[in-house]
Design a protein around this nucleic acid. Structure first.
Lengths: 113, 113
DNA sequence: ATTACATAGTATGTATGGCATAATAGGTAA
DNA sequence: TTACCTATTATGCCATACATACTATGTAAT
């Protein structure tokens, strides 16, 4: 994603799971969907996305299957599993909590030492 | 921080810079301040915090100096540099942007494929 | 005094994960 | 037939979060 390096480490999986929760997609399609749906704010390069998908599949949060598109081209379509849905719900809750914590830190409710 | 692994990678430096922007602190004090000021949501273990401070210092975003506290004990006090303040401003802006992007993704303005 | 505990910092190693890059290959249009 | 866009795989680097263990000091309890 076009962010100063590590700011969004860890959110990538949640984003992928969220998008897959609305329907199956193949990798390339996913990377474009993430850009579009985030208003071009979030970007996942292929060097990030594909390894991430392999990882999610190994953890059985998504599952992929090869299908032949109308064009005759082979694509690997990923869909979210029920485990993945559980994980997504947990991670979303944690994102909200993180957001709360950051708000507390940055609102300056405490005086400096 | 007490989150499911890597959800908040990259936010630690911003949090540290933010807190140091209100006054100098030593490491141990910082780790407690982060917990307190985030309502116990964010936690940095020493294995994370100290290496992070060394890294910030190497990048001249903070600077540390040894001082002898009233107790007679040596402590390393860290303060934010002007470079650090610039970095903090940039990172805060990026955090806000990230938040915007995530909101777009999770609000579901787009239909699934 | 001695122990126990909280404070304070350093050092080391591991695992994760974002990312760049390169190699491969198929479909489409000039 | 060349060029370009699509599509996936593989390799390797680097940053970083974290656990653990080690060292050391001040304070309070015994």
């Amino acid at each position: 994603m076009k962010f100063e390096s590590q700011l969004l480490k860890g959110v990538a999986p949640v984003v992928v799971l969220e998008i897959l929760s609305r329907g199956q997609m193949y990798g390339y399609e996913l990377s474009q969907a993430i850009e579009e749906r985030s208003g071009d704010i979030l970007t996942l390069g292929k060097g990030t996305l594909y390894p991430l998908l392999y990882n999610l599949e190994a953890r059985k949060l998504v599952k992929g299957k090869w299908e032949t598109a109308d064009s005759g081209r082979e694509r690997r379509y990923y869909s979210i599993t029920s485990r993945g849905k559980g994980q997504l719900a947990r991670q979303k809750a944690q994102l909200r909590e993180l957001h709360t914590g950051l708000n507390l830190i940055f609102s300056g409710a405490f005086a400096p030492a």
